[in-house]
Design a protein around this nucleic acid. Structure first.
Lengths: 217, 217
DNA sequence: AAAGTATGCGAGCCTTCGCTCATATTCGCT
DNA sequence: AGCGAATATGAGCGAAGGCTCGCATACTTT
């Protein structure tokens, strides 16, 4: 259940208003893609969408809610891809799955780099309590599942913490490469796998004798 | 040589103006620490400093210049610490040095978490071309030196890329933990070392036969 | 058709905030 | 003391931009 301040002001009941909402969200995406955060204001979004500002505020209580919807959508599509990848990973080697995950992350970021970077920025700025956390939890759960399946190859003691760390590491490496002038995607892919594989395979430094498989927060 | 738009408007010539500049910077730090980015505007900074806005703009051409000075200072102190650590690392094991570096990063971030997080945010937002890059280059150079010294323990082929990746990974893990409600610094330290050590020790996937020691951008 | 509801409109209100400038004060120097 | 330079002041300008509200239009229902 989303934050009170982010809940839609009213729900669309006719087909045209559903279309309007879609147009607004696509316009927001376009603005973010073409002008990054500099021209990203509600008036501009409305202008690009070909609707009035009033219409924007008919369904989004504020700008943050609009951005949150955008974030939610991209995060969900990412989580879907990861879910699918992990679900199909039976029998594959850990290294192979990590490579696939790296590819998903890279595609996600480099498919629309400016948009992705801008959203990352907003993600940090906004206090999206539950919303982001939901997609984030899905990601963590998927990775945790993967780690548990391959626990014999893994030195990291706590799957929960390791899953979070893996996500953090991938995100950081990918974003770092995205900020480069001439990104080297092949090199990046290789380095992401190296980082993940290295982190996971590294033998436990403490009580690796004790196994704590299901440590969900 | 700093960006034109960031150069000080005039240099202080009397003792009192030097003090004023210091008071302003300390006030900015306090505002950032106590109110994060929400109250971080030039009027507030001046108020907290006990000077007028005019005085702020006497020595800083704009707000970005002020923030940049703040960033420069903290980055420099971090680079100093890393430099020193690497310089004293002769004879120590790679793992030992990585642990020290992890501690430096953790101390740097958790000494004043709100301030550090806020500065991180500004760092990404501002176009600080040369300024940040200088301290950043120092960090990269130091780490590169360390990696080259321990190249027999390291599988990563390119010291330059590996150094950047190490910095990115550490920063991401530390910031991630900093955003937690109850940070676990001991666990973090351990995981940072695991990530670095894992990334570095992992054998090269491609032509690890070819050694490219000095690959500076 | 008429009434009722949903959707769309956009000028402009209002707040925030970076920054200026005319004026006042203090300092260094002879 | 007196003069010029350096420093400090703070009311307020102006731009940016989130958001409202009264009204117009379109659709649905009876």
């Amino acid at each position: 259940m989303p934050d009170e301040a982010l809940r839609p002001r009213k729900s669309p009941q006719q087909a045209r208003s559903v279309a309007t909402i879609e147009v607004i969200l696509q316009a927001a995406t376009r603005v973010l893609t073409e002008e990054s955060l500099s021209g990203f204001n509600t008036n501009r979004i409305a202008q690009v969408a070909g609707v009035s500002v009033g219409s924007v505020y008919q369904y989004f209580p504020n700008k943050a809610a609009l951005v949150t919807t955008l974030i939610e959508r991209t995060q969900t599509s990412l989580a879907d891809a990861v879910d699918l990848c992990v679900a199909r990973s039976q029998g594959k080697s850990l290294a192979a799955v990590l490579l696939e995950l790296a590819n998903i992350a890279i595609t996600h970021q480099f498919g629309n780099p400016v948009f992705a970077a801008a959203l990352d920025h907003e993600e940090r700025r906004l206090p999206l309590g539950d919303v982001l956390n939901h997609a984030q939890e899905r990601l963590i759960t998927s990775i945790q599942l993967l780690l548990t399946e391959h626990r014999q190859d893994i030195g990291a003691p706590l799957p929960a913490a390791a899953a979070v760390d893996c996500l953090v590491i991938v995100k950081a490496l990918v974003e770092s490469e995205a900020s480069r002038v001439v990104p080297d995607l092949d090199g990046l892919r290789e380095r992401v796998v190296r980082a993940l594989h290295g982190y996971l395979r590294q033998p436990g430094s403490k009580d690796s004798s004790e196994s704590a498989p299901d440590t969900l927060s």
